[in-house]
Every structure is written in C-alpha cells, then in structure tokens.
Nucleic acid binder design. Sequence first.
DNA 1: CGTAAAATTGACTGACTTCAAATTCGGTGG
DNA 2: CCACCGAATTTGAAGTCAGTCAATTTTACG
Lengths: 249, 249
Amino acid sequence: MQPTVPPVLTPLVKKLQLWRPLGQAEQQAILALPHKLEEVLPNKYLVREGDQPSHSCVLLEGFAFRHKVLVDGSRSISAVHMKGDAVDLQNSLLGTADHSVQTLTRATVAFIPREEIQRIAFEFPLIGMAMWYDTLVDGSIFREWIANVARRDAAGRLAHLLCEFGLRLEAIELGDRLSYELPMTQEQLADATGMTSVHVNRTLMDLETRGLIARAKKFVAVADWKRLEDVGGFNDNYLHLRDEKSLLP
Amino acid sequence: MQPTVPPVLTPLVKKLQLWRPLGQAEQQAILALPHKLEEVLPNKYLVREGDQPSHSCVLLEGFAFRHKVLVDGSRSISAVHMKGDAVDLQNSLLGTADHSVQTLTRATVAFIPREEIQRIAFEFPLIGMAMWYDTLVDGSIFREWIANVARRDAAGRLAHLLCEFGLRLEAIELGDRLSYELPMTQEQLADATGMTSVHVNRTLMDLETRGLIARAKKFVAVADWKRLEDVGGFNDNYLHLRDEKSLLP
DNA sequence: CGTAAAATTGACTGACTTCAAATTCGGTGG
DNA sequence: CCACCGAATTTGAAGTCAGTCAATTTTACG
C-alpha cells in the first residue's frame, strides 16, 4: 500500500485555519481549487510591479518577499512570506500590482486563477472570512513594520524582526523561535529594516556580542528570548495568533 | 416641499464605489445598514489598542488617524483617514485591536455592528468585494508608508505625504491637490513620518523656502506640484484610483 | 579550485536628534 | 473686543547614530 500523500494545497488550508475553523466542506473546496504547480528558483519574480496578474499565488514551500524599488534605486521590503501564505491576494485582487514579489529561496508555488479565489470566497463565507482575515493580519504586520522602521533604533529593528520570524515559523509548525534558518542576506535585512547592509552587519555582531543571539551561516539561535524581546520592544499581539476565533461571527 | 436630505451613510457608498460599481440594490442595502451616529470631539479615541470592538466605525465627516504607542513611549502613526473611510474594518473584524484610532478633528462617525458588516458582505458579493478591496488599498498605502519612512529623507517623506493627502482629498471630492487644509500638528506629522517635530518644522520651512509649498495656519498650498512629486518620489499607482475596475471579476 | 556574492572592517561624514528657550497661535472668558 | 494661557511653532547649539565609500576577508557553489 502507498501511504496517502497529503493534497498539495494543504498548507493553504492550515494557514487559513489559523484564522477561522473550517468544516469538511470548506477544506475539500480549497483542496479542489484548480491550480498550476511550479518550482521556482531563488530570486525569481512571482509578480512584478505593474503586472495585472490573472492568478493568485500560494507558497507551498520556501520563502518569498514583497518589495518596491524607489525612483532613486533604493529598495524597500515590506513583507516576508512563508509556507501556506497566499502571497498574492494583495496584488491579484487589486487591478495592477503596486509592488513586486520575489522568491527568497527555492520555492514551490501554486498559481490559482483569481476568479476561482473570488468564487470560493463567496460560495463559502467561512473561507471568504478566513481569506479576508488573512489580508487584515498582513495589514496589521505592515503597520507594525511602519512602527519598526519609524521609531526603533538599529538593534531594536533587527531584534523585532528576529522575534517575528521565529514566532511565525512556530505558528506554521516549521521551526522553533529559539533556533531557525533566516533565509535573508544582510542586504535584504537592510531593505526590510530601512538600514544599510553595513550597519546591519555591525548591529548583528553587536547583538551577538551582547549575548542575545548566536549566528552561523544563515542560522540564528536566540540565546536570550526575553532580552531580545525587550530590545525589540516586541509584543506579539499584532500577529493575532492568540485571538479567540471560534466565538467570532 | 422639503429638499431631500441625502442619507447619512452616503459617504460610505461613494467611497466603496471608488473600488467597485454598485447597483441600486447594493446602494440601498448599504444606506439601510443599522447604525448609531455620534459627534466626536478632536483627539478622542474611536478604538483603543486592546479593545474588542463590537462595532465598525465609518467616518462621515472629519479626519482621524491610526497609531500605536511603543514601549519607550514614542508613537507611530500608520494612517490618516477621511470622509467615507470605513476606519475600522481593520480592528473590528480582527478579534483584538492591535492599534488605536483617534480623531484629528471634530468628526461625525457612524457605528455599525460588525455582524451587519459581515452579513452585507456575503449577502451582496459586490459589496463584499468592494470592502475587501478597500482593506487591500489600505494595505497598499501601508506598504508605501513603510517605503516612505524606510528609504526617503526628511524632505522626501513630507513631500510624499503632502502629495498623497492632496490626491486622496480630490478622490473624494473634498478638495484640491494644490490647496487644502492639513489638519495635523507638526508633532503628528513627525509621528507619521518617523521624524521629530523639530525636524518637521525645519523641513517644512525648507520646502517653503525652495518654493514648493506655501503655508498659512493649517493650510497648505502646493506651489509646484511637479517638483513636490519629484522630491517625494511620488507615484500615485499605490492609491489604485485609476485602475480599471469595471472589467474586474 | 576558481569566482562572484556576501560578510566584515575601518575611517570619515552628515542628517537628524536632543534639549532648551523664545515666540506665535488659538481659543476662552471677561 | 481684548487679555490671558496653554498648545503649537520656531529657533539655536551641540551631540550622535547611522550612512558612505572603499578595501579586505570569507563563503557559496558550479
């Protein structure tokens, strides 16, 4: 007997279930969504600013990030995405992409026609609410990133980013907040925190010297979670992972 | 004969119609939403971080802003809202408010039960898509603000904010991009751009000296729109005001 | 094993902050 | 209409965190 292989869109079901409990019918409907699978190399574009995407993409494996390039050539990264994330509800439901999405690592991506997304959202209100909720949580993270870049110093910005990454990995059962692989270069970390790569380098070394983290290659170990949270002024409420959902309308 | 008074929720209908054309049935349904009207003084909270709001509020008149206070006491403003904005889809659909919303000016606000919002969204998919679209545009503006604070210098940040404010006022037919009242103190501008109020002051004076704007009290006149756009690296695509909507699914 | 990308280091610079004081504005009550 | 008072704006001087530019070392990987 072959062991049963879980359907490929399972990560999307799991992600949406972080936000709303879904019944059997809803789960089946999601797993049955028509889609085109694709293996994508690192640093490849999934969507480019200016595109009018006809498909929404879901990350089944690997990491990706959103960014925009300003007129002076500098770059701003506004989000990092991981397994199960419906990376492009943002762009595909809006008419024209206002930013680009690029892979960070090798990734497996499912492209789903945007009409199918809309159909399922209104045919199954529970799914619709879960997807809407998901875009609202993305919005909440954007707001926190505004605060991060606007009001924290270099060490605080990086500490905050490290806390967020750890917690989000844990939420999707992909790792441990105290030790994980951070698949970003220092230049990408700089673009995500509004710094220069030189200063990211010095600041990471400083966090290490102070005994908050340890590093080896792309791996990060948090040596003192409590102090890292303090330095980053980190409070996980904005991730909405612990809100009571079952009682919500 | 009395002249017909337009129903109070008309600004919401108009705002949503920026995103999706609505039929008669949809418009009627929105105008018929149960709500509680309230006049609110300046600087009053509409939602506080930590609340579990049971109502969503719509701004019918006046201005408001979203913000969060960091542990060190500093403040980050992540959005400014105006007439017709459904200010709190963000917080009320999520379980617990992750930030606060406060009035900037005297305002007229309609509080609508969150269940009613959800009911109408799924009963009328066109309304649901328009509301979802609205939250996605909010998200797009958040991303642009991340870029603003992360990558532009002081003059660029303020120039960008001034361009955005002018265009958004125009979009809801509440003013002229070249001349309007900006109902924010320099301290609030500082919290919206990640600066100090002292530096906001110096930078505004600099923009004035360079002939880009003129100021009197809270009024701003843009003396050279093109140059102001250049300084702010402003591109209005992220506001999604000119995307083709009628053809969208 | 070779090469390009990424990380690290050093010296110098400057945009913005900080702290404090002075001035002007805006609204209120007499 | 004007006097008053707190809030908001403006000004000044000094300090600093992070940027810039350029060189060196290490790593990743075909």
